[in-house]
Amino acid sequence: MDKGTPIGRVRGLGSAHHGAHHWLRERFSGLASLIVSIYLLAGLLMLPAYDYAAVRGWLVRPVPAAMIALFVLTNVWHGRMGLQVVIDDYAHVPANRIVLTALLELVAIAMAAFGLLCIVRIALGAA
């Protein structure tokens, strides 16, 4: 098994069968983000003002609150997958790639947690 060139060792094995999964998830999350973003952009543009009272009064309502939560989730997910591809394309040293991927995972989870906590606090009236 250790003989031959790298390309010779993998030639004929076919697909690894997990490229399409990432590709499909990227599209699904993009589509979800499109729907949520259009709703939020329209809502934001229709707001009478952008001061604290107006913005909080909007975000405290159930549908905008749910949409903001979905916005955070879909876009953190979508951005995490997109940046993973960027890292895979440009970070050629394995150690750099692993460190950057780990950093990306940690920051993505932290951002999702922070965003959801904020929305919960606003929607449930703690803020």
């Binding site: 955070v72 953190v76 997109g82 940046l83 951002m111």
Partner: peptide, 21 residues
Amino acid sequence: GSGLAVVGLPIVLWWLGAVVA
């Protein structure tokens, strides 16, 4: 896409955090 993820999302979260604060 990279800019939106690295700059845009943190600003949205800053905005949400500011409403909470």
